[in-house]
Computed example of a mutant assay.
Amino acid sequence: MKKVLITGANQGIGFETALQLAQLGYFVYLGYRNQERGLEAVKKLKDIGLENVEGILIDIADGNSIRKARVELESKTIFLDILINNAGIAGDEPHISTCNIDNLKKIFDTNVFGTLQTIQEFLPLLKKSLNPSIINVSSEVGSLTLLADPEENSSRSNFHVYGSSKTAINAVTLMLSSELRKEGISVNSITPGFTATELNNFQGRKRRNKALIQL
């Protein structure tokens, strides 16, 4: 059975991903930073008959928490097939020209540095898999191609600060992909699109599926 760790998996896209992968037969470790909400998410999945799930406490903005999560996972499994870096924060800073630098640093601490440290910590477990994969959840608001288009850029101007962190993650993804390809580890960025989640106060145009809503 393939084993997957998903950060930020107690809600939104992370939870939906955990649900679908568990239904497909993967063993899913749900990463969460809030113990109460995380255990509730695990219980929801178990209540619908998915026993191939377990929770892991991990706050990717806290280096010690990441290390403790790695130690805990090593006590449960000798390998990890897939790491999905879903955890992230949007912050409340829309425009890059007027953003508070401390807030910008906070967003980068989670979305970029936290994601990279998570990858570094769990690489040894991934390298023990026969077909390891790292997936970084990004966003189209971090696309340099779209930002270079005046019309597209204007429609995304309220997401420049958050988008800059996703641009950085896209660059990290490409660098890691080039570096780790020779070791048989695939590294990719994906975007779920503008989906209604707590991250955007449920303003996204895309909605989660019926199965998740029923939970």
Results as ranks from 00 to 15, higher is better:
residue 101 I to G: 03
residue 156 R to Y: 08
residue 58 I to M: 08
residue 12 G to A: 03
residue 146 L to K: 15
residue 144 L to G: 05
residue 186 S to R: 15
residue 206 K to R: 14
residue 95 H to K: 13
residue 1 M to K: 11
residue 33 R to P: 05
residue 146 L to V: 00
residue 108 F to Y: 15
residue 79 F to E: 04
residue 164 S to D: 01
residue 155 S to A: 13
residue 173 T to L: 06
residue 137 V to T: 12
residue 178 S to D: 13
residue 121 E to S: 14
residue 163 G to L: 07
residue 6 I to E: 01
residue 12 G to P: 07
residue 165 S to V: 05
residue 51 E to G: 06
residue 170 N to Q: 15
residue 163 G to M: 08
residue 128 K to M: 14
residue 37 R to A: 10
residue 57 L to H: 10
residue 5 L to D: 01
residue 124 P to L: 05
residue 186 S to H: 07
residue 120 Q to V: 10
residue 184 G to E: 06
residue 111 N to P: 09
residue 181 R to Y: 09
residue 138 S to H: 09
residue 106 K to R: 13
residue 22 A to Y: 06
residue 7 T to D: 08
residue 9 A to M: 05
residue 211 A to F: 04
residue 110 T to W: 11
residue 148 A to K: 14
residue 76 K to C: 01
residue 21 L to C: 05
residue 29 Y to Q: 02
residue 26 Y to E: 09
residue 165 S to R: 06
residue 112 V to I: 14
residue 97 S to F: 12
residue 172 V to K: 01
residue 209 N to L: 06
residue 149 D to S: 12
residue 14 G to S: 12
residue 67 R to W: 00
residue 188 N to W: 01
residue 205 R to V: 15
residue 8 G to I: 00
residue 37 R to W: 01
residue 166 K to M: 07
residue 70 R to H: 07
residue 46 K to G: 02
residue 13 I to N: 04
residue 72 E to K: 11
residue 163 G to W: 06
residue 130 L to A: 15
residue 49 G to N: 04
residue 97 S to P: 00
residue 47 D to P: 03
residue 95 H to W: 13
residue 163 G to Q: 08
residue 21 L to Y: 09
residue 56 I to H: 00
residue 118 T to C: 12
residue 141 V to S: 10
residue 115 T to G: 14
residue 198 E to F: 04
residue 187 V to T: 04
residue 169 I to G: 00
residue 73 L to K: 02
residue 93 E to F: 10
residue 2 K to P: 14
residue 13 I to K: 02
residue 204 G to S: 08
residue 121 E to Y: 14
residue 58 I to D: 01
residue 127 K to A: 10
residue 104 L to P: 05
residue 88 G to S: 15
residue 7 T to C: 11
residue 39 L to S: 07
residue 175 M to N: 14
residue 206 K to N: 12
residue 20 Q to R: 15
residue 48 I to W: 04
residue 215 L to E: 03
residue 194 F to S: 03
residue 186 S to V: 05
residue 208 R to A: 08
residue 172 V to Q: 04
residue 106 K to G: 00
residue 26 Y to R: 03
residue 20 Q to E: 15
residue 212 L to P: 00
residue 169 I to M: 13
residue 208 R to T: 04
